[in-house]
Amino acid sequence: MIKVEDLHKSFEDLEVLRGVNTTFEKGKTNLIIGQSGSGKTVFLKCLLGLFTPDEGTILYNGKAYQNFSKNEKRELSKQMGMVFQGGALFDSMTVEENVVFPLKMFTKMTKGEMKNRVEEVLDRVNLVDTNDKFPSEISGGMQKRVSIARAIVNKPNFLFCDEPNSGLDPRTASVIDNLIQEITHENDITTVINTHDMNSVFEIGENILYLENGLKAWEGNKDNIYKTDNQKLTDFVYASNLFQKVRVTQREGL
């Protein structure tokens, strides 16, 4: 579980996060949504430890990050898996080398054990016969799946995803969403997903945080997002005609 209390972050004169409070539950897919520039990526990078917050506290399993020793911070980063927007796969490595990388760096596994674990996770993300291919030789959807495999190979307690289905066709995007949700439930981990995709919101939004101008504007789940009267949230979620029709259908109980 990750608890965030009064999180502030500024860049020179620009105040990006202005006191965010929320809790990301374990075993749930927690989604952060909001318009471009609302502070989602900065928020995620604060959770990952890539940005240091100006004020506020982030508690990982009840312990504040500020109180972690250097070794504890290093241990915490080993418990984190991250799926970047563009995949962030290492270009010079094959799919197998990318996935085995965290194991090589942080475990004392034998080559055989590593090989088995890599096969296991690649199988889990439905990737076959791609082990020796380079990232440039596989499709965008496959790259995302390799990125997920690399993020989960070390059995992390926290999984972070930055727009995991951006640039993918709706079918592949749905596959990726469901895969992340299944992995979250199977391993009982805390998953935080930063997304713009409303399909993801309605498919896997077990806990949704809506950010606006660096503040929490709404929090709930995919079921009560239909019933909300928060005008700004509804303007954002139902921006497309298709989702407006979905909303009408849902409200009418059809």
């Binding site: 430890g49 890539l50 980063s77 984190m80 563009g86 962030a88 796969l89 270009d91 965290p102």
Partner: peptide
């Protein structure tokens, strides 16, 4: 620079490297 642009450096940092 390409590793910076494609977030590969961030990926290393997140892993604790």
């Amino acid at each position: 620079g390409t590793m910076r642009v494609s977030e590969q450096i961030d990926a290393l940092e997140v892993m604790g490297i």
